[in-house]
Amino acid sequence: MQPTVAVFGILRFPPEQMPEVRPHLRTLVETTYQNDGCVAYDVAEDPFDPGLIRFSELWPDHESLAKHLQAPHIEPWRTVARRCGLLDRKFTAYDINGSRSV
């Protein structure tokens, strides 16, 4: 499936909260892969900036992304993130129609 939407983003938590965040983040990623129709949904902690989580996502279309954002597992994740002291959240979606590999 050729993706048409790329999403890049970050979440920032207090570094001491990361042990609590990780299992919930894993659930989010696994559930997203199983249910939401993403092409790729990659998440990583920044090794040089404790508490910073980077996201890169590929979606077949904007409709799939919109459904993901309303999926049943998203609100529980958001609740946990707030409880764990979410400090920052920035995500940007880009149209990648007509893109090619370099």
Rank of each mutant, 00 (worst) to 15 (best):
P19I: 02
P19Q: 04
E20K: 15
E20M: 15
V21S: 01
R22D: 12
R22M: 12
H24R: 14
R26S: 05
R26K: 05
T27I: 10
L28Q: 05
E30I: 00
T31K: 00
T32Q: 07
T32R: 08
T32I: 09
Y33W: 09
Q34I: 09
Q34A: 15
N35C: 04
N35T: 08
N35V: 09
D36I: 05
D36H: 07
G37M: 10
C38T: 00
C38Y: 08
V39H: 01
V39Q: 00
V39I: 04
A40L: 13
A40P: 07
D42R: 02
D42N: 04
D42E: 11
V43W: 01
V43Y: 04
D46P: 06
D49C: 12
P50T: 14
P50Y: 14
G51K: 10
L52G: 01
L52V: 05
L52Y: 03
I53L: 04
I53D: 08
R54T: 03
F55Y: 14
S56R: 03
S56H: 05
E57A: 10
E57Q: 13
L58M: 10
L58A: 06
L58D: 01
L58R: 11
W59T: 00
W59N: 00
P60I: 03
P60E: 11
P60V: 10
P60K: 08
D61P: 06
D61S: 13
H62V: 00
H62K: 13
H62F: 09
E63G: 11
S64V: 06
S64G: 14
L65S: 08
A66G: 09
A66H: 10
K67M: 15
H68W: 09
H68A: 06
L69D: 14
Q70T: 03
Q70C: 06
P72A: 05
P72Y: 02
H73K: 11
E75T: 09
P76Q: 09
R78E: 11
T79L: 14
T79E: 13
T79N: 12
V80A: 12
V80Q: 14
A81C: 10
A81V: 07
R82V: 03
R82F: 03
C84I: 07
G85K: 00
G85N: 04
